[in-house]
Amino acid sequence: MTRDATGLRRGWTTGACATAATKAAYTALLTGAFPDPVEITLPKGQRPAFALAVESLTATSATVGIVKDAGDDPDVTHGALIRSTVSPGQVGSGVVFKAGPGVGTVTKPGLPLDVGEPAINPVPRQLMRDVVAEVAAAHGGSGDVVVEISVDNGEEIARHTWNPRLGILGGLSILGTTGVVVPYSCSAWIDSIRRGIDVARAAGRQHVAGCTGSTSERVVTEMYDLPEDALLDMGDFVGAMLKHLRRHPVPRLTIAGGIGKLAKFADGHLDLHSGRSQVNHELLATLVADAGGSAELVDAVRTANTALGALQLCQREDLPLADLIADRCRATADDILRGADIAVDIVVIDRAGTVVGRSGHRA
């Protein structure tokens, strides 16, 4: 296990764990012995070894379980037991994938898998095909197998992911493009935003909403009566959402969030996490001054502790700071979209979920 530049420990994806489990299970099916640890090759050439947590061999199948180690990343699947059961398939069938307990099934179009397929993404599928071919060549197998992937308690874990909204029902997805989990890279979240856009487009949605959290999501749902698959839990990653929409547009986009995060977006930040961007109070003071605010108000906004505090100061003097922030957000969004045919509106809320500012909304 390696560490990144910050000293944080990297981990392995569910796809890497499923691949290792498949290699060990197929080896046992052909030879009667489980390799422990089992080593695999990842797309970038790393060769991690995995200890077996579960092993079972019958006359017709072999099962191996591997506990996922996500390193120092706050991954909901950290510690999950990923199982692969390998059994002989029909002659000439190659590798056939099945969703076992705790692995979801695709029920909506727009994902990189057909409806009805197990939620095992293309890269993990190819990694598993590769290890099946490797083991078959080494031990005289045909390579015609059924690979059933399951995750203990996977259906419950999946409730804390995007899967239900994306139409992946019954459990988790088996994910990973590199096999490696980079701590706090949030690549899985960004990938979920992209998949959410793809699913909304495939469903014919004309209006989607990117929300920073559950409160803003509730607000836009009430405002626009949007279906669940039109809601994008963008969190801090407004830039990632806009860049994907630029390439895959929908007619209308609402961006909704708290005034603190949207004040950062108004300043051009595309990652709104508190550790990666801060509210620019000088910008807020400039907006207030340009709107005719008094010198005293401008100074008070410049030294306010938070964007919400600046808003409250402006509300006392009937100066629409949140509307000004919304206008700047809309301009930032248009810059990122680079002419894509998307009508953008902004909804700014306070902590109670009250709409305090808007821009670009239609009557």
Rank of each mutant, 00 (worst) to 15 (best):
T13H: 06
I66Y: 11
V123R: 13
R362C: 15
A310Q: 05
Y26T: 02
I168Q: 09
S359Q: 01
V91N: 04
T303Y: 09
P35H: 10
A136I: 04
K261H: 08
L337K: 10
L231C: 04
I346C: 02
A119C: 06
A285G: 10
A203F: 01
L8H: 13
I255D: 00
V106Y: 11
L81E: 01
G7C: 07
R247A: 14
V279R: 05
I255S: 05
V199M: 09
V86T: 00
H269E: 08
P48Y: 14
R247M: 06
G45W: 15
R205I: 12
Y26P: 01
L81H: 02
W12K: 03
D290A: 09
F237D: 01
V238T: 14
G210L: 02
V106A: 03
V38C: 11
L272W: 07
A203S: 14
L232P: 01
A119W: 06
E282S: 08
S294V: 03
P183F: 10
A209N: 08
P37I: 04
D198M: 06
G92N: 01
C17I: 12
S84R: 09
A263R: 08
M223K: 06
M234S: 15
L324K: 13
Q126W: 09
A307P: 00
L319N: 07
T31G: 12
Q126H: 08
L308D: 11
E156V: 13
E222S: 07
F34K: 12
T22P: 00
A33F: 02
E55C: 12
A70T: 08
A291P: 09
V344K: 04
M1Q: 11
V355Y: 15
P124Q: 01
E228V: 10
R338V: 02
T63W: 00
T41Y: 06
A99Y: 14
V145W: 12
A310K: 11
T161L: 12
G275W: 15
A352K: 15
F50I: 02
V355L: 07
